[in-house]
Design a protein around this nucleic acid. Sequence first.
DNA 1: TCATCTTTATAAAATCTTTATACCGCGTTC
DNA 2: GAACGCGGTATAAAGATTTTATAAAGATGA
Lengths: 225, 225
Amino acid sequence: MNRPEILVIDDEPPMQKLLEIILESNAYTYRKAANGKEGIIMAANHPPDLILLDIGLPDKSGHELLSELRMWYNKSIIILSVQDSEADIVKALDNGATDYLAKPFRTAELLARIRSALRKNSAAETTLPIEKGELFIDLGRRIVRRAGQPVKLTATEYKLLALLVKNEGTVMTHHYILKEVWGSGNQNDTQYLRVFIGALRKKIEADPNQPRHIITESGIGYRFI
Amino acid sequence: MNRPEILVIDDEPPMQKLLEIILESNAYTYRKAANGKEGIIMAANHPPDLILLDIGLPDKSGHELLSELRMWYNKSIIILSVQDSEADIVKALDNGATDYLAKPFRTAELLARIRSALRKNSAAETTLPIEKGELFIDLGRRIVRRAGQPVKLTATEYKLLALLVKNEGTVMTHHYILKEVWGSGNQNDTQYLRVFIGALRKKIEADPNQPRHIITESGIGYRFI
DNA sequence: TCATCTTTATAAAATCTTTATACCGCGTTC
DNA sequence: GAACGCGGTATAAAGATTTTATAAAGATGA
């Protein structure tokens, strides 16, 4: 995961500023909402990897907001609160909060809890599988099936297919593919590529002579559809 | 879940007594271990639903103990500590602790965090017995049978099989398997893995020469089907 | 001591690289 | 228009290399 996005829902400008500084200087992308309504909208439009939610918001109780978010948002939510009352913590964790942190907090503890929460995220979700016609590709779990039948790919074949699939629709030059799959030493060995494209077609195309997924762009490279 | 079992690993009798009172009076079954070694043994013999681990134990650092437990214990572990230093918290959470609580703690907060941790347990796993062809595997009860005959597995073989079965269908890399089963020190000793895969196949495959369940993905790892 | 785990050794299998050969489209030449 | 060469491509099959399987000897620990 590169630069996880964190949405901060908090109405106090000084706290916002503090969190912005902490998060941005630790390779997180910071987004902010000044109240609950704005927070819901932002989270819905572009779901962040984690939400930091202040429980003392102006328009609606943070607890209510938490319940609303939890109806559809399934990634981590860390609660921030000045109250730190026992009842508050109980309620927040029982309501589905991933974690709870009392203000004022130490920077290192905040970061540690963020890391822990993000790890839970990535453990839960996996990259979404792709299904195109009779072809099924799940890059995360390394599962490939054609017409329901599991397809066994070698390590190199898999790397090649993954690269093509990740850049679906766009033409990848020979040069670039060779660099990504074989490393920067073999950038001119176009023959490797031909051999392996051939092998891949045999395995995933219904008719390898008339490839419908791995298209050759003569003189340039290949493209996955 | 009726009366979740909580194992407390803590060497101070007063703290043990306090936790016993708190837990027993809140419908939890309390079990205790006075040091790390005893804790490991008790957890292994009869895995509790949650472990409360004091980080300042006499025989070995709580952090080491945490790593050891995490090699095979996948339910919640809450760390207790008087230190409450930032580095300590970071280390514990990064090492796989579910949560962290500084002593002295408030009873309500402890109970809230326990509830939250237990909820994570039940969400994460629900290990139903698996029955595939002549193979029967019940991870929860540690029972494995092939063609009706009980199969005896060693501790390591069992850990390996459990990891593969839990991730049925997905390819597990050598590196990852080694880390999970043998710990983070032996991540490059692929030969261990080969030996134990061989042993497992002899025990659970009808024809070990033509494995139908433990599939090797050359250059990558193994997969269970 | 016994069962288990770790190492080492070696054979077997799978994969990758390389070479050889045929193809296809296209413009040039005869 | 047929023959030829040319750049780019596809496929098969040979070595070469890497990876895996298995046995078996040593080490460890209850």
